[in-house]
Simulated assay, not measured.
Amino acid sequence: METSNPDEPHLRHVERDVLIPKMMREKAKELCAEHVEAFTKCCKDSGLLMVVKCREENNAMKQCLTKHYTDPAFYEECKQQYIKEKQEYERTGISAKHRAHRLPTSM
């Protein structure tokens, strides 16, 4: 899946096969939020019968998520975002998660 581009930093196995796919899952859940919420609500409302009653919602959610998980362009988009965040962390020492929660210094 990865091509040799001299302008891109080398990605370790754990970055390619664990961290970027994790980012993909998180972004896909956001993109498929409507289906995830519908399945979650159905499960809460159905109790033990959720396996039978929530098939339609489960299938719609899985179809939406799988569409993103198997999209090479989506992988590339997440990879580029990961590289950007990694470079910013190396430059500043502040992770993207912590950067989002910091107050502006101009206050």
Results as ranks from 00 to 15, higher is better:
V52W: 14
P21I: 08
L49K: 09
T105K: 12
Y89H: 12
Q63R: 15
L19D: 10
V14A: 13
H13V: 10
R102N: 03
V51T: 09
T40G: 03
G93S: 03
S46K: 10
T66F: 10
S95H: 03
K86E: 12
L65I: 12
C43D: 09
H68R: 11
C43T: 15
Y69E: 12
K97T: 08
L48P: 01
P6G: 08
M61H: 02
K27F: 05
Y89M: 05
Y89K: 10
E77Y: 15
E88V: 01
C32H: 04
E85L: 05
K44H: 11
I94V: 10
E8N: 11
I83W: 07
E34V: 12
E57I: 06
M1I: 10
A73R: 11
L11Y: 04
I20L: 03
R12N: 14
A100N: 06
Q81I: 05
K62F: 04
K67C: 03
L19H: 07
K79D: 04
S106Y: 14
V14N: 14
A33Y: 12
E26H: 10
T70S: 08
E2W: 08
M61N: 07
K62E: 14
E2A: 14
E2G: 06
P9Q: 07
L103K: 15
H10A: 12
E85N: 08
T3S: 12
K84I: 05
P21E: 05
E26W: 03
M50L: 07
C42L: 04
D7M: 13
K97R: 14
E2S: 12
S4W: 13
E56V: 10
T92W: 01
N5M: 08
H98W: 06
V36I: 13
N59A: 12
E37K: 15
T105A: 09
N58W: 03
P6Q: 06
S4H: 14
P21M: 05
I94G: 00
N5S: 09
A96L: 06
V36G: 04
L48R: 11
E26V: 03
R12M: 14
E2M: 11
C64S: 01
M61W: 00
K62I: 04
K62D: 14
M107R: 13
V14L: 12
C32P: 08
K53W: 05
K22P: 03
C64E: 06
K79V: 00
C32S: 06
C64V: 02
P72G: 07
P9E: 11
H35I: 01
Y75W: 14
R16I: 13
P104A: 15
E15R: 01
V52G: 07
F39P: 00
A96C: 01
T66L: 12
D7T: 10
H101T: 02
H13S: 10
H101V: 01
T92S: 09
E56Q: 11
R16F: 08
